[in-house]
Design a protein around this nucleic acid. Structure first.
Lengths: 224, 224, 224, 224
DNA sequence: TATGAATGAGCATTCATTCAT
DNA sequence: CATGAATGAATGCTCATTCAT
């Protein structure tokens, strides 16, 4: 174990170790003793930092989502127009899911746990992220429509669908054993959605880039 | 308990009861005794029909997926052209997810379980369905492109994305507490995807129905 | 299953099947269903003939011991002098243990069960046999001493020791995996005991047969 | 519960408690919770020291046999001639069986368990003891014959018989409810065997002590 | 702060026995 | 007489959590 004096840093260290163990075996099949062993601390030490097993479990998701939200807000605030703000949202999602691709089964677990746990903090965390995304997404969409880039569309529905699609692609990627590139799949998705919503004016600006992406798909190897 | 003589029917009865109990509490938190009590049989009886708790759990998913697959194949074979075949796939999905909307958390559990269980039958079942869907989806898409309805698109990528989107909408619906209509969301999705892929010729046939759907969204109440 | 009409014969048939199954797995590890299957009858049928599992278990020993006792009494009554009566006892023991050599572990089980079971019938059965043997053995010994064949010896102690030695040889044979001939071991035992108790007169009648047996032992192969 | 700090001592303490409980009820009828209660520890604590119930069971026999073997070897090595070595073996046996007279049913259980258990460690333990005894016994016997004390006898057969007789006397003692003195029975046995094997020269040295023992037997009360 | 021995509530699974047919 | 589906009491073992050191 790395010698860590700073309490906050040690907590983060324990969270990251726990994430790896939970990912491999799932919440119920993971024993606190295994996490302790993996972190090279005693079982009792874990309880100095986390009240219960579920608390430790939630802390992982908490950490991740908080980081995700911070990223979104930062990039969003640095963006200068609707297009950049769209990118801010999309790249944040891609980065989040990509950086946690090895924890994929755990994210599924969080969702499942959120639905069945008596502890509503899981669900609240998920919905707070959802709220952040839909609020921002709604604004962007309305701006895109207003400025003539997009055909008229119900912004809230569109945003909600977008977020569902993001999760769905990730889910599909997990259940298929990670056989395709997550990034390319997200781009393919954007092209497919975009081509439908973009007005003729906007579309002409992009040339046939979109059509090309659609023809290519996201399953082929870079080299082929 | 309804008096059931046919062994096969009793097994299905037990599966349906178990599905309800598992849905409410999740796999680990559900006790075999609770299922037995809910089915008004003795604990031992469950073990006359299912070797283990996990076996019972899998049997539920097995039953559902088998039914789902049968529906897909039947509707697909009765369809007469590519458009009808598209409908066959889409309505099968909508019907499946709609009929199991109350079991939504359980489906998430199956996915999570498939990833973490040593028992690979879960994952195999998921992937066998996936295979059925992508094989058929690919054919339809190619036909749509070939007959000039769709712009060129990589059929396999498109099909995979479509299936991911289906699951994603369902997931979003679950995590948001079922606040919107699943059917309307699926139609909104179809319109959004359709408007992007359809050629001008095909689009002109549909008039502005698609634009209307997009403007409406899927979140508003029918009556408002 | 052989078709058996006579109830008494069917009971004996079930006992013999049960003996084989119990021998292989032991009392606790043997399931009534296994015995039923081995006998090609339904579980319920066993309960037509035996009240409980323990009852069936006891019936086996009962059957064996009764047969053993009948043999002893018959041979004993047919014998005409002390030497023949000695043979009657010894050959009955050898025949009993030899005929049940394949059930050896089961006999150990009976002994163990007799000691721990609340059902005292096991112990009573054992002690009734013991009583028969010691009563008869005592008489013979006294006759042997009285007629000048044996040195003076406490007949009850000697008889009890003899019976213990019989069981001990059998036990040794079982725990050593049956690597020697049970019959030859019993004869070796008789020679060793005999040579000590026999008076000079009696010994001279036997010549050096006894010494020869002792030199040979009971471990060597017949052919070597 | 006595307060015990040393882990090794606590293990031995748990073994001794378990031995008493197992003795009274037998392996299968004894619940781990009963042992825990008798030892005034929690059930879980037992599992800190023993992996399974069978492991605890074996540990008892292991402990006993190991101690027995140590005694044999020590006394054997301290003996200066064949006669003393004979005593070393015999007194070790008598002491072992005497010290465990209250555990008698348990020893029968071990034998039965050894034969039926999948866990071969039981049988191996029994046979390792057997091997130690027969190796040493064979040497002594050969020495006795060689030095003219014993008539010629097959040493391996004789030793094996001796060990079987030891167990048989113990068995007889147990099944008869401990109605005689184990020590006296062992001595009676030694006299009976001895008188047969001893040469005239050797016998004359002992006078008529042997004949006296035989006449007395081992069943009479000291005071009568 | 850190430890890890001790705890004991909790649960899947087994199987002898019953009894309606 | 025979059956075998149904029963439910019984128990080995696990593991999150505690707390004395």
């Amino acid at each position: 174990m790395p010698i860590i004096v700073d309490k906050e840093k040690k907590k983060k260290y324990l969270i990251s170790v726990a994430a790896d163990v939970f990912t491999k075996k799932g919440f119920h099949a993971t024993k606190m003793s295994e996490i302790a062993e993996a972190a090279a601390v005693a079982k009792g030490t874990l309880y100095e930092y986390f009240a219960t097993k579920e608390d430790l479990f939630l802390s992982i998701y908490d950490e991740w989502i908080t980081e995700y939200e911070v990223t979104i807000v930062q990039r969003f605030n640095n963006a200068e127009d609707a297009l950049e703000r769209t990118d801010a949202i999309r790249t944040s999602a891609v980065d989040f899911y990509s950086s946690h691709r090895n924890h994929a089964p755990l994210i599924l677990e969080f969702w499942a746990h959120a639905l069945r746990s008596d502890d509503k903090r899981f669900l609240e965390k998920i919905q707070s992220l959802q709220y952040l995304l839909t609020t921002k997404g709604k604004n962007i969409t309305e701006e895109m429509v207003h400025s003539g880039f997009f055909h008229p569309v119900d912004s809230q529905s569109f945003t909600l669908l977008e977020s569902g699609i993001s999760d769905g692609i990730f889910l599909s990627w997990v259940l298929n054993g990670g056989i395709f590139s997550l990034e390319k799949a997200y781009e393919f998705r954007q092209s497919l959605i975009g081509i439908g919503l973009l007005t003729e004016d906007a579309r002409s600006l992009l040339g046939n880039k979109l059509n090309q992406k659609l023809s290519e798909g996201f399953l082929k190897d870079e080299n082929s």
